[in-house]
Amino acid sequence: MSQEFLPDDNLSERPNDKSAASEQEVVQITVVGSRKAVLETIHTLYRLGFAAVGDWSPPQRGPKLGQVISVLIRRSGKA
């Protein structure tokens, strides 16, 4: 198993940053591909209970011709 995906306890807390406890964690999930593939992926994730379709950004022009990008941003309190 790749070690880079395991939590690093030394990096997870910032004891000198008093505002860290009140900040929210932000996670951004990006789907990039053809418009059809992006919309199918968003609908699949909805059926799996991951996120509502309306939680995703509207598809925007992607980095390559024929691609679009849609982004989901999740915010949660620090654990």
Rank of each mutant, 00 (worst) to 15 (best):
N10V: 06
S76M: 15
I29M: 09
I29E: 05
R47P: 00
G33T: 09
I29A: 10
D17L: 11
E13I: 11
S70P: 01
F50Q: 00
Q60C: 04
K36L: 09
A20F: 10
M1K: 10
P58L: 07
G77F: 15
R35I: 06
S12R: 13
E4W: 11
Q3H: 13
T30F: 00
V53F: 06
R75S: 04
D55W: 03
K36T: 15
G54S: 13
R47V: 04
W56K: 04
I29W: 06
G66E: 02
I69T: 10
I69G: 00
R61S: 10
I73N: 10
I73F: 03
K36I: 12
D9L: 15
H43P: 14
V71G: 01
V32P: 00
A79P: 15
G49P: 02
A51E: 07
V32G: 02
I69Y: 02
R35V: 07
V53S: 07
K18F: 13
M1V: 12
A20L: 10
L72Q: 05
V26K: 12
R74F: 00
L48K: 05
I73C: 11
S76L: 13
S34I: 02
I29T: 14
A51L: 03
L65I: 12
T41C: 10
I69N: 06
Q67Y: 01
K18R: 08
P7I: 03
I69M: 11
S57M: 02
P7R: 14
D9K: 13
E40I: 02
L45K: 03
H43C: 11
G49N: 05
V68M: 00
V26W: 04
S34C: 07
Q24Y: 06
P7L: 08
W56A: 01
L48A: 08
E40T: 10
L6D: 13
P15Q: 05
D8P: 04
L65V: 13
V68E: 02
L11V: 09
G49V: 06
Q60T: 13
F50H: 01
L11G: 05
E13H: 13
N10L: 08
S57W: 06
R74K: 14
Y46K: 15
E23A: 15
L39P: 00
Q67H: 01
D8L: 05
E23V: 04
R35W: 01
Y46S: 12
D55A: 09
L72K: 04
A37P: 07
E4D: 14
L45V: 00
D17I: 06
T30C: 09
V32Y: 02
R61F: 02
F5L: 10
Q60W: 08
G66S: 05
K18L: 15
K36H: 14
G33Q: 02
Q28S: 10
L48Y: 09
V53A: 03
V27H: 14
E23K: 15
R61A: 03
T41L: 07
Q60P: 05
S70G: 03
K18S: 14
G33E: 03
L45H: 10
F5W: 11
P59S: 09
P59V: 12
G77Q: 14
R74L: 09
P59M: 08
L6K: 12
R14W: 12
P63Q: 02
L72V: 01
S2D: 14
R35K: 11
V53W: 06
Q3K: 12
W56M: 03
S12H: 05
Q28G: 01
R75C: 03
Y46F: 15
L65S: 08
K18E: 12
R35G: 05
K64A: 09
